[in-house]
Design a binder for these strands. Structure first.
Length: 433
RNA sequence: GUGAGCGUAGCUCAGCUGGUAGAGCUCCGGACUGUGGAUCCGGCGGUCGUGGGUUCGAGUCCCAUCGCUCACCCCA
């Protein structure tokens, strides 16, 4: 055990016990995205490092110290993507998708950040993300919120809280940031070490400090909301009105800030208090300036990303149920030389005759007892027994593994096919066997 | 990057003040020549994370190192 090679720190295996829950989550999210007319885009996991530096921001933690960056054989600096938006914008620009038309897109896949792992935070993690290009109004912002709400509903995820805020436009943010830094510098002796460091890196975060000693100073700090111009203000009011109209509950959190530089105007987060320190399950906002910043024409854009590890963690209680939904319908037991030789062919014939059938055929021999044990553990609803007697008579014995009140019966292959069809259709009437 | 807690069988863990490693679950087999999930019996399975030190003797004490977990930071 000590000599074995282990997985890379912070990069986890998802074992077969767990994959059914992941598949259920992914399937549900995909269904919702399609219900809103969003189309999937797939982009590489590796991009030029410069793409992330120019989009996320050079001085952010992500770019400064969390990227997996390496030099390609030809000398280019490449990085594993730490988030999905930059690559998506790059792909759209590269293929001319942003000329005039609007696009509603989604993607899913692994992201990489070299952080210290902890609950809900991993070095390889998975996101489902959405990006909308070319629609400036608050109606899409609201649509994204409604889409999220539907995702939670269909997943059966309860207790998520929606927090929203507006960051205004670039100009307002610049003025506010300058005033804020000046104000905080004037009170620098009242700041703790962390906050002094953040004066350089992320001054907005200082407002979010949990240190009670700084509360008085922070209360007097310039507020971003006072810097908003009329248009940004109207956008936010419009967004809120649409949420109210739709009956979505939310909370305005003026201290809600996004870590990535490119956000402006609407930002939002869906949070839970059931995941320890990493309570954000989904976050997003508007980034109207990013496309231009990456060399395209000015193009309004909004998006969000869902952290799949966090969603799966919240749904952990449904692991068994999800696994049961994907278990085989039937397990084919074959004992004896003749039956064992005939089993694979019979299994093929049954799969041909019953579309959608999930049939596990026993391999590796074993006694009746051993094979039934495997059948039981496979989660199958019925065991199909093929022994010398059945083989000689062209029949199969159907044994119900989950319904103790249904006796096993030996039937013709045609009857077995009919029964399996009913099982697959979900109207399995076990008594009919 | 900083701090704290924890590393004993595939999994969950016991092992008191140092005396030469155990249980439950899983898996395989038997009781039951073609019948699983219950019960009983048996079997497989361990360089006690790794390296060094103290000692007649270290799973136990000391040091280092690696790993895991949680928190800070940051964020999905």
């Amino acid at each position: 055990m000590s000599g074995l090679i282990q997985s890379v720190r912070g990069m986890n295996d998802v074992l077969p016990e767990e994959t059914p829950l992941w598949q259920a989550v992914e399937g549900t999210l995909r269904g919702v995205l399609e219900a809103y007319g969003y189309r999937e885009i797939r982009t590489p996991v590796v991009e030029r490092t410069e793409l992330f530096a120019r989009s996320i921001g050079v001085v952010t933690d992500i770019v400064e110290k969390e990227m997996y960056t390496f030099t390609d054989r030809n000398g280019d600096s490449l990085s594993l993507r730490p988030e999905g938006t930059a690559g998506c914008v790059r792909a759209c620009l590269e293929h001319g998708l942003l000329r005039g038309q609007s696009h509603r897109l989604w993607y899913a896949g692994p992201m990489f950040r070299h952080e210290r792992p902890q609950k809900g935070r991993y070095r390889q993690f998975h996101q489902v993300g959405v990006e909308v290009f070319g629609i400036p109004g608050p109606d899409v912002d609201a649509e994204l919120i409604l889409m999220c709400a539907r995702m939670w509903r269909e997943l059966g995820l309860e207790g998520l809280r929606l927090e929203i805020n507006t960051l205004g436009d670039a100009e307002a943010r610049r003025r506010h940031r300058a005033d804020l830094v000046a104000y905080l510098r004037a009170h620098e002796d009242a700041l703790d070490a962390d906050s002094r460091r953040r004066l350089e890196t992320n001054p907005l975060r200082i407002l979010d400090s949990k240190n009670p000693d700084m509360a008085a100073v922070l209360a007097g700090a310039p507020r971003l909301i006072d810097y908003l111009d009329g248009e940004a203000r109207a956008h936010f009011e419009g967004f809120r009105a649409l949420l109210d109209e739709a009956g979505v509950a939310y909370e305005v959190n003026p201290r809600l800030v996004r870590g990535l530089d490119y956000y402006n105007r609407t930002v939002f987060e869906w949070v839970t208090d059931r995941l320890g320190a990493q309570g954000t399950v989904c976050a997003g906002g508007r980034y109207d300036g990013l496309v231009e910043q990456l060399g395209g024409r000015p193009t309004p854009a909004v998006g969000f990303a869902v952290g799949l590890e966090r969603v799966v963690a919240l749904l952990e209680g449904r692991r068994e149920a999800a696994a049961a939904e994907r278990a085989p319908h039937a397990y084919l037991v074959a004992v004896g030389e003749g039956p064992e030789r005939a089993a694979l062919g019979l299994a093929e014939a049954l799969r041909d005759a019953v579309p959608g059938l999930r049939l596990a055929a026993n391999c590796g021999g074993g006694s009746f007892k051993a094979q039934l044990k495997r059948a039981d553990r496979s989660g199958a609803r019925v065991a199909l027994l093929l022994g010398e007697e059945e083989l000689a008579g062209g029949r199969l014995t159907v044994k119900w593994l989950r319904e103790p009140d249904h006796a096993q019966r030996t039937v013709t292959r045609e009857e077995a096919v009919a029964l399996l069809r009913a099982l697959v259709a979900g109207r399995g009437s076990p008594g009919a066997a």
